[in-house]
Design a protein around this nucleic acid. Structure first.
Length: 300
DNA sequence: AGCGGTCAAGTTGAT
DNA sequence: ATCAACTTGACCGCT
């Protein structure tokens, strides 16, 4: 069986990650603001441990960490360094404990920076902010032993080839810590596996193959071919994504995610070991447990 | 305590 | 032109 991954949050389990808004933080004096952020970070570090323990108890081998695990960490005005928080050392220690727990129990962790991280934007400040965000997530990755920070190709700006050249150029300015973890994922509108595989080979980063996106945004490769080619880009256990369309493939918005994974959407050749599959489904842990149950019934 | 408006950020494509 | 979609509703300030 593959290793299944849970994304960021829980549907039923009472495990919550907290955040705040820049507006609210901006209204406070700096001391009060840092106190509040300190609180949220500590609670999130504790929640992460609970999340990992839940995964361990339920044989969920991978957990994706929310980008806001340290809220507004890279905000241009209200951002901060963890060492400047009142309990910064304890917060780091709690994350390191999470990393030790994950390692001991073979739980893989990863990040998926959100849509604002665009490495190939023509706007210099967008690239700068993206790099700041990647460096922050790499810092936490080191504490918790996360081995993947996964982003999309970014914008097209009228010319895919040129846009991907910019991606490669800007990749070079990243720290080694980010480079070692950065992966690129095919998306549902712009970049297909066919577009991205040459980038993977050129700068030696893995392809996170999203089969749902590939079904929305097709190229010359069959799903099986893309699976094989994506696997070849990995120097460690490959990591893929799956989801099912909210109203079926004939529905109005097939790119929207369903609560659960439809067994029919699961490629049978993905039911193998040495593969991580993140389950992108709105029912979260329930969806992970369900697809695993269905797959084991299917074999029996 | 409950409720509704708001939330840092980019890009694309549907309406 | 506006808005939803993207890993996801949660937070905050008002009553």
């Amino acid at each position: 069986m593959p290793r299944f991954g849970l994304c960021c949050m829980f549907k039923e389990q009472p495990i919550k990650f907290r955040t705040t808004t820049a507006t609210s933080i901006g209204k406070m004096d700096r001391l009060k603001a840092l106190e509040k952020i300190d609180n949220l970070c500590m609670q999130n570090a504790e929640s992460l441990m609970l999340a990992l323990q839940f995964c361990n108890q339920n044989d969920i081998g991978c957990f994706r960490v929310n980008s806001q695990i340290l809220p507004i960490k890279t905000h241009p005005e209200y951002g901060y360094e963890v060492k400047d928080l009142p309990n910064g050392n304890e917060i780091v220690n709690q994350f390191i404990k999470c990393g030790e727990f994950a390692k001991q129990n073979d739980i893989r962790t990863c990040f998926h920076p959100d849509q604002f991280v665009v490495l190939n934007s023509p706007k210099e400040n967008v690239v700068k902010a993206s790099i700041r965000e990647l460096e922050y997530q790499a810092e936490v990755s080191e504490w918790i032993n996360a081995d993947v920070i996964n982003i999309h190709g970014g914008g097209v700006y009228g010319n895919k080839t040129e846009a991907l050249k910019d991606f490669i150029q800007n990749f070079k300015s990243l720290s080694q810590s980010v480079k070692d973890r950065l992966t690129i994922e095919n998306d549902d509108k712009s970049y297909t596996p066919e577009d991205l595989l040459p980038v993977c080979h050129k700068i030696n980063i893995p392809l996170v193959y999203d089969v749902h996106h590939h079904r929305c945004n097709k190229d010359i490769y069959s799903l099986r071919e893309a699976t094989e080619k994506a696997k070849e880009t990995w120097n460690r256990e490959p990591l893929f994504h799956i989801s099912s369309p909210i109203d079926g493939w004939q529905g109005r918005k097939p790119q929207r995610h369903h609560d659960f994974i439809d067994l029919k959407d699961f490629p049978e050749y993905w039911n193998v070991s040495n593969l991580t599959i993140e389950i992108e489904a709105k029912a979260k842990e329930l969806a992970v447990l369900q697809i695993r149950e269905e797959l084991s019934n299917n074999i029996a």
